[in-house]
Nucleic acid binder design. Structure first.
Lengths: 107, 107
DNA sequence: TAAATATATGAACAATTGTTCATATATAAG
DNA sequence: CTTATATATGAACAATTGTTCATATATTTA
């Protein structure tokens, strides 16, 4: 048995939905995972994920706005990483869950 | 410091992205939360969430396909709830995170 | 200052997706 | 068997969203 009931206030539901839908886009999720534990420059992300720098930048703008990632400029580069440890642990929890799920996959 | 690196295999990334984008639609998230801990019939969900039964049913089909919710027919009704405890704990973790986030909101 | 590199932005386009409406199926009751 | 209620489904439409391309801004180096 888990908690007695899930009664999250409407604003929080909206907030969570926004965060999930932003994280739910495959390229964005790959960007998040790529710079979750280490800082990554825009260009490096583009090369590694085989996406155009423009597309990466557009996605990064959303991720920044949602306070999922943060950017730090160093010369001509801007390095991105998780906005805070809270985001890091939330994403880590999710990846843990998908890995667990595949273990006990009785399908 | 969290884990040393996030290197989730591509299939798992796709799987996680799908799950997140399905959960990220506001009405679907409300449906999930409404029947996470307790079974709810389609009609009851429609009334409570102020959505048409048809729309609820369409969303439920996706949630079923993604193995997030499962349905059980009892007479004319079909009762939905979380597909398993794994889903329940994953969603609970997420709601916990948004609640924590608002506490330490230094914005 | 001019050229080169890295990133960001806006508009246009393409693709996906949420919603509605009409209709179909399932179960129960008259 | 017919009617009523609950849920599901398919097609059409509307809205949102991901991507591309051209261009702008920022920073460094010649």
């Amino acid at each position: 048995m888990y908690g007695p009931m899930v009664d999250l206030d409407p604003d929080k539901v909206t907030e969570l939905a926004e965060m999930l839908s932003i994280m739910g886009e495959p390229n964005r999720l790959r960007i998040i995972l790529a710079c979750l534990e280490t800082e990554r420059a825009v260009g490096a992300l583009a090369v590694d994920l085989e996406l155009s720098p423009s597309l990466v930048s557009h996605h990064l703008r959303l991720l920044r706005a949602a306070r999922i990632l943060k950017g730090r400029r160093a010369g001509k580069n801007v390095f991105y990483t998780a906005a805070d440890d809270h985001v890091r642990s939330m994403v880590t929890d999710m990846t843990d869950h998908v890995m667990e799920a595949s273990q006990s996959d009785h399908a």
